[in-house]
């Protein structure tokens, strides 16, 4: 047999095998799409079942959330009332507290790290901050419930304030600290992407470094920073364990940070752990809440990721 034939058969053989391998890998990439599809389909399907039992207007605009108690046995939706507004109220209140803590801390540390800190300091401080992001949320929840909440209650008591033992403030503050590294590392990237020429021009005109940062770098980085704040907010809205352990179960329409409020995620857990009949409105409502949460965070994420990407391209 001449050598040439051998070479041809050898290169012929791997072709179908190569194609098979590529097809398998493409399927693996397709799994990512399947997951999204699975999330959407399962949530939408169960939500439709839920909306057959509870009208959508009652769900979206109802002012009362009490899935357990029936007021009258023969009423429509006898298993309780499913108004989601108190939950949205609680979720937004706690997220707002978290962002009020995390935004100044995260942004100022990002500015300091990217503009002032020496390389050595940055090499130490950045990983130290990242530790905060790596700690499981159940640990934050334990700390919030065991240490921070009693501390706030005690401090509030000294000023004559009545603080609930599971106050929104405790959960929100601890969550805020958790989000700091997310904001600081995203904003750090954004600030670093601002071209050096802008800084040099400002410094050359006689501005001090802080004036340059405030009047030139920050405005230039603003869209990217807005994106990172949006991502952080979406993270706060979807956070479960901290609020489950440190915030309450009482659904209340309140803007007082010292009150106990409940969130969408806490209610999902409360509805789905313990005994449950699968097709009851109570169980199904958890999926409706899940869909609401998914849509809410997805919109924020899509906008945020688009802003950040567009911003990067602008200076590339």
């Amino acid at each position: 047999m001449p050598d040439g034939t051998l070479i041809i058969t050898r290169s012929e053989r791997p072709r179908w095998r190569d194609n098979l391998i590529i097809a398998v890998m493409a399927a693996a990439a397709g799994v990512a799409i399947l997951v999204t599809l699975g999330i959407v389909l399962s949530l939408v399907f169960e939500t439709i079942l839920f909306l057959k039992k509870v009208p959508i207007s009652n769900f979206l605009f109802g002012l009362e959330w009490s899935p357990q108690t029936a007021i009258r046995a023969d009423q429509v939706g006898a298993e309780g009332s499913f108004g989601v507004l108190p939950l949205i109220n609680g979720t937004l209140l706690i997220s707002a507290i978290a962002m009020a803590v995390a935004t100044p801390l995260g942004l100022t540390s990002a500015i300091y790290l990217s503009e002032y800190a020496s390389k050595r300091a940055r090499d130490w401080v950045k990983p130290a901050l990242e530790i905060l992001a790596g700690i499981p949320t159940v640990v934050y929840g334990f700390f919030a419930a065991l240490t921070v909440a009693p501390f706030i209650r005690m401090t509030g008591g000294q000023f004559g304030l009545e603080v609930a033992s599971e106050s929104a403030l405790a959960a929100g503050m601890v969550m805020g600290i958790m989000i700091v590294p997310l904001i600081s590392s995203l904003s750090d990237d954004v600030i670093n992407a601002v071209p050096q020429s802008l800084r040099d021009a400002s410094l050359g005109m006689g501005a001090t470094q802080s004036e340059t940062i405030r009047r030139v770098v920050m405005p230039a980085a603003l869209p990217g920073i807005a994106g990172s704040l949006l991502l952080a907010t979406s993270r706060a809205i979807g956070e479960t364990m901290i609020v489950l352990m440190a915030a309450g179960l009482a659904a209340k329409l309140s803007l007082n940070p010292l009150d106990a409020v409940t969130t969408i995620t806490v209610q999902i857990v409360a509805l789905l752990t313990g005994d449950q009949e699968f097709a009851s409105a109570k169980t199904l409502s958890a999926f409706a809440l899940g869909l609401l949460l998914f849509v809410l965070t997805l919109i924020m994420n899509v906008i945020a990721l688009r802003i950040v990407k567009k911003y990067r391209e602008q200076y590339d």
Partner: peptide, 21 residues
């Protein structure tokens, strides 16, 4: 885009997916 968004989906939603599917 899908993968980037999936990374930011709240973890509890994955739990709901597991429960339902």
């Amino acid at each position: 885009v899908n993968i980037n968004n999936l990374a930011a989906v709240p973890s509890i939603v994955f739990g709901l997916l597991g429960l339902s599917i």
